[in-house]
């Protein structure tokens, strides 16, 4: 990938990120933060990529630790967000 392509993706993503949350109600600040928190658990993909090509013990150890931490972040994040939102279930959100 060229640096320009990466920069383009980056800048457009910034705007999308600003835009999608611009109208969030105060009620949902916590679940939204928690959901975004789960999404950055996607670093798991990066952790798997580096772990799979690691050969030295040091690299492997660090990479496997990263896989564990990232899994906790991702899975725990989505589960805990779902639990928060479960409580809003069945209410015709008027807000």
């Amino acid at each position: 990938m060229t640096t320009m392509a990466i920069l383009t993706i980056f800048v457009l993503s910034v705007f999308v990120g600003f835009e999608v949350v611009s109208k969030v109600s105060t009620t949902l600040h916590t679940p939204l933060m928690s959901g975004a928190n789960a999404i950055h658990g996607i670093i798991l993909v990066g952790a798997i990529l580096v772990a799979d090509k690691s050969t030295s013990t040091l690299e492997t150890t660090l990479a496997i630790a990263a896989v564990v931490l990232a899994t906790i972040n991702m899975v725990g994040g989505f589960v805990v967000t779902d639990r928060m939102l479960e409580m809003f279930k069945g209410k015709g959100g008027k807000k």
Binding site: S13, F15, V21, H29
Partner: peptide, 12 residues
Amino acid sequence: AGTLVGASGTIL
């Protein structure tokens, strides 16, 4: 994904 979280997190 990282940029989305970074940007929306900043707004939040």
